[in-house]
Amino acid sequence: MVWFIPFLLFIVIIEHTGMYIQEELHKVNSWLYNISIPVEFFFYSYLFKSYFRDKRFKKIAMACQWFIPVFAIGNAVFSQGFYNFNTHTLVAGNVVMIMLCCLYFVDLFKREEETVLRKDPMFWISTGLLFFNLGELPYTIFMDYLIVHRHDQRAMLFISLNSKLIYILYAAISIGLLCTRTTSWKTISK
């Protein structure tokens, strides 16, 4: 969890840089997101690997952690190219995240000790990721079609869907981080 703050800073820098490239320099910024998206999925996979108790799930998370960057590089080099937005990487990442979130809930069910979910940071992060990735998956699946045929629809859908899902994702992550802080305070005060 200690790497979360640097990760969030990384996201902020990427988003601001992307906006600057598009709005100020009037250039294509897809290449920036082709780099940042695999990094995001790599980080989230690492987080799941750290929190899984079941050894098999840890191995699956580790495999996913390295599958995503390899897939991204392969896709950029051999399929969609580095300067076009890599929708396949996004779809693969969405599916991997959905799978890891479901595995986390299964791992949670298998625990033998009492767990208070609302105080578990990873529960909130998994909730946010599940909502975000499941909600975005239909859009990312149709993204290629929309890019080729319906530019205006793509922009509208992106704004209406993605922005709302982003709020849910980062609200859940914020609650998760607050849970961690509360636990730390209680440990210190003891």
């Binding site: 809930f105 909502f131 909600g135 239909p138 859009y139 149709f142 079609y145 629809q153 859908l157 869907l161």
Partner: peptide, 22 residues
């Protein structure tokens, strides 16, 4: 266009409902 938009919205809503259920 409207059909595609509705399809994407409908699938997204179903998936989000699934997430909520989980």
């Amino acid at each position: 266009e409207d059909d595609i938009k509705m399809i994407i919205y409908a699938i997204a809503v179903i998936f989000i409902a699934m997430a909520l259920f989980i």
